[in-house]
């Protein structure tokens, strides 16, 4: 397994270089370093001298991928914006944003609030969705099954934004149960995360129930389930001991890969609930043309995604003894 992991990590390096290359290319197709300077300096203060100073200070005065003026061929490649700005990423040195803030400090500060919302939403969401889907699998074919599926489709069809605004109006503005938005660390923060977590769980319930139900229904028609029932096991025992365990493999495929990306936060949820997380960090950086943040966050996102895939592979070995990583 160790050799497999090493191999996967090494495979990740060209993938990350490729992602980084595409990020550079796409960003600089849309924004020139002059545009970036203007965005940072503001609309009123963009004299050519200021723009040149800004580009020099932030290293954007170098060519993007190829420096034809360099004295040697090696420097022609290394003395470029792409190489200069990419190398440090691979040792997770994200440097400072174009506005002058330390990116790693910002990321560390924002990860906590993002996880405070994303983690409970994720865990409670899975438990609730699996519980409901097991329940309706238990009563499959009944009126309860039909009604639940109708509700699930309805929940899926409505925009998440609707739940957020309705939740804020109903539970905060009308009933005065929780704050409309805000965040606080420690136990004080509990009242702030109840509503976004509840909304997050509810909004994901429709798709979750439908997906898990289809997995469990596929399992429940297997021979081993019939055998278990023939042995005289109760429906609940069959569901929890056999169906759930055997259904875990497809569930893990979709679930474990998501875990690392929880760190990246949720844009809409964090914006509406004023959660100081990572959700809007990348989008804000794109809007303000802060390339240092954009490249750092894309790189981090790619690393987390690759990590998620590796974790998924590893998790298979725990639930399916037939799987061997070699």
């Amino acid at each position: 397994m160790f050799a497999y992991l090493i191999r996967r990590v090494l495979f990740a390096v060209p993938i990350l270089i490729g992602v980084n290359f595409i990020t550079f290319a796409l960003f600089f197709i849309v924004n020139t370093p002059d545009d970036m300077a203007r965005a940072q300096l503001g609309a009123k203060q963009n004299s050519p001298e200021l723009i040149a100073n800004w580009k020099q200070k932030h290293g954007y005065d170098k060519p993007l991928f190829l420096n034809l003026d360099a004295p040697s061929a090696v420097e022609g490649i290394t003395d470029t914006l792409f190489v200069q700005q990419s190398i440090k990423l691979f040792v997770f040195d994200f440097g400072v944003s174009d506005a002058g803030r330390k990116i790693s400090a910002d990321i560390l500060e924002r990860i906590g609030p993002s996880l405070a919302i994303a983690l409970p939403t994720f865990i409670i969401g899975i438990i609730t969705s699996i519980s409901f889907s097991l329940l309706i699998v238990l009563f499959r074919g009944s009126t309860l099954d039909s009604i639940t599926m109708m509700i699930a489709v309805a929940i899926m069809s409505i925009s998440g934004l609707f739940y957020i605004i309705t939740g804020q109006v109903l539970f905060s503005k009308i009933l005065h149960w929780v704050p409309i938005s805000g965040f606080s660390s420690g136990w004080d923060g509990f009242k702030f995360i109840i509503l976004p977590v509840a909304i997050g769980v509810f909004a994901g319930l429709g798709s979750g129930i439908r997906w898990y139900r289809s997995i469990f229904l596929e399992e429940i028609n297997q021979d081993y389930v019939r055998t278990a029932k023939a042995k005289g096991l109760s429906e609940i025992k069959v569901l929890f001991k056999h169906v759930l365990q055997n259904g875990m493999l497809p569930i893990l495929t979709g679930v474990v890969v998501v875990i690392p990306s929880l760190f990246m936060g949720s844009l809409i949820m964090e914006s509406f609930f004023a959660i100081p997380g990572l959700g809007s960090y990348t989008i804000d950086a794109i809007a303000s043309q802060d390339f240092s943040i954009v490249k750092a966050m894309v790189f981090l996102g790619s690393v987390l995604y690759i990590l998620g895939l590796i974790l998924t592979d590893i998790s298979y070995t725990f639930f399916d003894p037939r799987v061997r990583l070699n």
Binding site: I165, Q168, V169, S172, S181, G182, S271, F272, A274
Partner: peptide
Amino acid sequence: SLEKESVPAWN
């Protein structure tokens, strides 16, 4: 406090 959305700030 940072309020990116106008609806929560108004309420």
